[in-house]
Design a protein around this nucleic acid. Structure first.
Lengths: 229, 229
DNA sequence: GCAAAAGTGTTTGATATACACCCATGC
DNA sequence: GCATGGGTGTATATCAAACACTTTTGC
């Protein structure tokens, strides 16, 4: 029988970490997926980069904790936040001597425009998501897993626009898809795909100042109940 | 800054629960999804039915704990086991006085043939997954969520055959799909679908004893690396 | 022969892709 | 005018669903 016993003694420590993604312009002027990491200031893995996170407070919901982590690390608000997975192997904390930690990991998206406002410091820096150094704990695998989830989810949900500001052109939206998926998309087919899903609507305005035909501006349609996923 | 501090005091209790699914013949002779629940023998929710589970031992991996829960509850081995979600709302344990519990929930599938061997008792019973009473905590929502995951996953993965014994006919496999999805499938199209995915292979034998043309027996093909999902 | 399910073939419609082409603006 | 991306149209391939039809067994 399951015992379900005797108060909270001897249960592993519970932490919440967050994989944060933003799109930032790289050297070529293209957008590229970036993620902020923090440098560990204590053992184990002292000095190495790791996911932002911390222990779960007793009075905080899981998502709230992830959200606070995000704000504490980057001063940004998440535009999208979703639970990724709970990682809890006995040996993931490194040495056998180390305390057992179970991490519930969230992943978050922040706007490209806001990401510039994010703080950077000696101990907080942005890395390109596909060019990471060796990180503390199992954090390399966790970010890989989060990347997979993002790439999968962008194909069937309406999360892409959270990288953009309130109004955007279809070319900008396409650039987001291309940066996340890592391949080029046909502009014509992309337009049809987006229009058929009904996730965007025209604002009636156009973007001026380009050196070609001015593109229409769109906004995301408001989500109809039960369609967060 | 994230503090990541000071040992394991004041972190919520961590529990692992498991949603167990099996297919069992109902009154009409059709297969139907069933799940075993345990009766709570202490407050909160004393006397109500709940998911099997228990606190996480310090020396146990998460999936191992789920597996042990399953064996302790039903004496069955899981044919399939996957993490579902971590539930951790501050108020999910009922009263404000209750201790904070974060549950990492797994879902598991067991074979239809084995499910009969599962124990039942005063405090452990099987319920039809779509006719549950009001359960303890947020366990009704959790099972709903697990059902959605199962129904979604059966469409794009090869988990269906775990409900069956080693060899099976395509009609039996189709019956599994129909029971899980809750709708009838075209036998011809189903055959083509299964054959095109390459998840089954012929054994060369046929099932005798039916009162019609004897159907071929199949077995599941062995999984090629990296395709658990 | 007849019933019943196994198994095959064909048609149709929806959807994704490739790609040709026209449109509207800045220069 | 011309370059450049915005935006539209169209042909093709792929795949899922519907359904007619043939096959093989028990009775």
């Amino acid at each position: 029988m399951s015992s379900w016993a005797t108060s909270s003694i001897e249960t592993p420590t519970l932490a919440v970490s967050t994989v944060i993604f933003a799109l930032r312009p790289n050297g070529d002027g293209c957008l590229q997926l970036a993620t902020p990491l923090v440098r560990r200031i204590r053992a184990p893995f002292e000095g190495q980069w790791a996911l932002p996170g911390g222990p779960l407070n007793t009075d905080e919901d899981l998502a709230t904790s992830a959200s606070h982590t995000l704000r504490d690390t980057t001063r940004l608000e998440p535009r999208y936040l979703e639970q990724l997975y709970a990682f809890g192997s006995v040996d993931r904390a490194g040495g056998k001597l180390a305390e057992r930690v179970v991490s519930i990991v969230y992943w978050a998206l922040v706007g490209a425009d806001e990401a510039d406002r994010a703080i950077q410091s000696e101990n907080v820096q942005w890395f390109w998501a596909d060019e990471l150094p060796t990180l503390a704990f199992d954090h390399n695998q966790i970010i890989e897993y989060a990347l997979g989830r993002l790439r999968n989810k962008i194909e069937y949900s309406r999360i892409a626009h959270v990288f953009l500001s309130e109004t955007f052109t279809l070319a900008q939206l396409r650039e987001v898809y291309e940066a996340v998926l890592g391949r080029e998309l046909d502009p014509g087919n992309f337009r049809r795909m987006v229009e058929s899903t009904g996730t965007v609507e025209e604002t009636g305005e156009r973007l001026a100042g380009t050196r070609h035909r001015p593109p229409k501006l769109y906004r995301a349609t408001t989500i109809t109940a039960g369609e967060t996923k």
